[in-house]
Every structure is written in structure tokens, then in C-alpha cells.
Deep mutational scan, measured.
Amino acid sequence: SQVHIGNTTFTFDNPEKAQKYAEKYAKKKGLTVQKNGDVWTVE
């Protein structure tokens, strides 16, 4: 599972961890999370 934030990609061994990280980061920065398969993009 991966989380894309700008030009940075974070890889997680667990989809739940990836989703939590993406949502927490997005909330903190006032951004949105797009999910595509097991990839979350914060923008």
C-alpha cells in the first residue's frame, strides 16, 4: 500500500496504516485523500 503526498511516496505493509496516515496528514494540512486501489493520494 502506498501514500502519495506531492512528489513523495510512502510505502506501508498494511493498507489500514496507509489509510490512517493519509487521512491524518490530510486533516492536518486541510487537504483531501483520493483512493485508487491500494494507493492513497493526498492533494
Rank of each mutant, 00 (worst) to 15 (best):
S1Y: 15
S1C: 15
S1G: 12
S1F: 15
S1A: 13
S1I: 14
S1N: 11
S1K: 08
Q2A: 09
Q2D: 05
Q2C: 15
Q2W: 12
Q2Y: 14
Q2R: 13
Q2T: 11
Q2F: 14
Q2I: 14
V3Q: 02
V3C: 06
V3G: 02
V3P: 02
V3F: 04
V3D: 00
V3K: 02
H4N: 09
H4E: 05
H4A: 08
H4S: 08
H4R: 15
H4D: 05
H4M: 13
H4L: 12
I5M: 04
I5G: 00
I5H: 03
I5D: 02
I5A: 04
G6V: 06
G6N: 09
G6T: 05
G6P: 04
G6H: 09
G6D: 06
G6L: 08
N7T: 10
N7E: 08
N7C: 15
N7D: 10
N7R: 12
N7I: 07
N7A: 09
N7W: 13
N7P: 06
N7S: 12
T8L: 15
T8F: 15
T8M: 15
T8G: 05
T9Q: 07
T9N: 05
T9G: 02
T9Y: 15
T9A: 06
T9K: 12
T9S: 07
T9W: 15
T9R: 11
F10C: 14
F10G: 01
F10I: 13
F10Y: 13
F10D: 00
T11Q: 10
T11G: 04
T11S: 10
T11K: 10
T11I: 14
F12V: 00
F12R: 00
F12T: 03
F12M: 03
F12N: 01
F12G: 02
D13G: 08
D13S: 13
D13N: 10
D13L: 11
D13F: 09
D13K: 10
N14E: 08
N14V: 07
N14D: 14
N14K: 07
N14H: 08
N14T: 15
N14F: 04
N14L: 08
N14S: 14
N14C: 13
P15Q: 08
P15M: 06
P15C: 12
P15T: 06
P15R: 04
P15E: 09
P15W: 08
E16G: 08
E16Q: 11
E16C: 11
E16P: 01
E16L: 11
E16Y: 12
E16K: 12
E16N: 07
E16H: 09
K17L: 13
K17G: 07
K17A: 14
K17Q: 14
A18M: 01
A18T: 00
A18S: 01
A18K: 00
A18N: 03
A18R: 00
A18H: 00
A18G: 02
Q19T: 02
K20V: 09
K20M: 12
K20D: 12
K20Q: 13
K20N: 11
K20T: 09
K20A: 13
K20S: 12
Y21L: 06
Y21M: 08
Y21I: 05
Y21H: 04
Y21V: 06
Y21F: 15
Y21E: 03
Y21T: 04
A22V: 07
A22Y: 05
A22T: 02
A22E: 00
A22D: 00
A22P: 00
A22H: 00
A22I: 09
E23A: 07
E23I: 08
E23C: 14
E23P: 01
E23S: 05
K24N: 13
K24S: 13
K24F: 14
K24V: 09
K24P: 00
K24Q: 14
Y25D: 00
Y25V: 08
Y25H: 05
Y25K: 02
A26G: 04
A26S: 04
A26C: 05
A26I: 03
A26Y: 04
A26M: 04
K27P: 00
K27V: 04
K27T: 06
K27D: 05
K27M: 08
K28Q: 12
K28A: 12
K28M: 13
K28D: 11
K28W: 13
K28I: 12
K28E: 13
K28T: 08
K29I: 07
K29Y: 15
G30D: 03
G30N: 05
G30S: 04
G30W: 03
L31I: 05
L31V: 06
L31R: 01
L31C: 12
L31G: 05
T32V: 11
T32L: 08
T32R: 10
T32M: 09
T32N: 10
T32S: 09
T32Q: 08
T32A: 08
T32F: 06
V33N: 02
V33F: 07
V33R: 04
V33W: 07
V33D: 00
V33E: 02
Q34S: 13
Q34T: 14
Q34D: 04
K35P: 00
K35A: 04
K35F: 11
K35H: 08
K35Y: 10
K35T: 04
K35Q: 08
K35I: 05
K35V: 06
N36I: 15
N36A: 09
N36G: 03
N36E: 10
N36Q: 13
N36D: 10
G37I: 03
G37A: 06
D38G: 08
D38N: 14
D38T: 10
D38K: 07
D38W: 09
D38F: 13
V39P: 01
V39W: 06
V39K: 07
V39T: 12
V39N: 11
V39Y: 07
V39R: 04
V39E: 09
W40K: 00
W40I: 03
W40T: 02
W40H: 02
W40A: 01
W40L: 05
W40G: 00
W40M: 00
T41Q: 06
T41S: 07
T41H: 10
V42I: 12
V42E: 00
V42H: 01
E43H: 12
E43W: 11
E43T: 14
E43C: 13
E43I: 15
E43M: 14
E43G: 14
